[in-house]
Design a binder for these strands. Sequence first.
DNA 1: GTCTATAGGTGGATAGAC
DNA 2: GTCTATCCACCTATAGAC
Lengths: 186, 186
Amino acid sequence: MSSTKDLILDSAQALAQSRGFNAFSYADIAEELDIRKASVHYHFPSKLDLETELLDRYRKNFIAEMATIESSTKGSTRQLQSYIQLYSNTLKCNKICLAGMMASDVGALPDHLSHSLSAFFKEQTDWLAKVMSVGKSNGELNFTGSAKSEANVFLSALQGGLLIANATGDETGFKRLKTSLLAQLI
Amino acid sequence: MSSTKDLILDSAQALAQSRGFNAFSYADIAEELDIRKASVHYHFPSKLDLETELLDRYRKNFIAEMATIESSTKGSTRQLQSYIQLYSNTLKCNKICLAGMMASDVGALPDHLSHSLSAFFKEQTDWLAKVMSVGKSNGELNFTGSAKSEANVFLSALQGGLLIANATGDETGFKRLKTSLLAQLI
DNA sequence: GTCTATAGGTGGATAGAC
DNA sequence: GTCTATCCACCTATAGAC
């Protein structure tokens, strides 16, 4: 049984990932959950509070997902595949990454949010670089640049690919992108 | 001497590329140009009209840029470098691609705009695939997948890389990304 | 083509009862 | 913790003078 606060976050996240954070209102959330706007304000006094908690939760969830992959999936290639799957799942729901969405409005964000956003991308890149580094050490992966640089390309392509695939409705294009990204590391 | 209409488009584009389309108003444009809101409405009755013309102009400009590159720059590698430079210039102004920004709000866009957005990404991918195809034919470039697939990875990485670099303020990361993208094709 | 003035609506936010 | 009621600022948009 989810708390109202969690349900609000779920609703807001779904709206943000498909429309953008500035394209929905408290009224949309209230309607979806069949509660009143004032109740939403009780849990999140300002919309900035909501946005902040949304990104915090998103970061934590992603970190947890990465930890799960690391502990339950063997092999660098398969770990990267599992990571990619997180993005495929998002695309299936006609959504993009919450952080990717917020990044497109970065010029309008207060400092603490842009810092949190920065941290998200660093967390992702660091984890990917670690996995790639291990894979190169044991001979499973093969690439020429630094792991950090490869991780940056990998994440960038996933973020951009998700954005484009979602805008064009081209799921097969995203499928090919996933294949290419892995092929380049083997 | 630019017309008022062009100045409005310029102002709106700059605002959209740094803040997002839903994070600025006619009042912002009017203030920047020192005119009244009603004058903006004279040229663009609704904000949707503004958004539509903005994307149309952006597409045309990009097509013109690509044509210029094709006619004035010799060699596939150098043509791709020139293309990449378009994105570097955007990053220098702390902006992202207008289409990338709009793509993050695609769930809130009317059909005609999402179709135009789709067309933009197709135009970019097609041009890149053509350049890559030529480069492969004459031995200048070397890659294993299809040109279309490589073009998709290339564009995705640039779009995502721009988004991330702009959000993190990491210009050097974007520089390395550019190098990696080209290295993968040689 | 640009202005003043204003309508009409929505969005974020608060007060206070229950 | 949720509700009703309401405020106020801002936003899109229009009417009509110049």
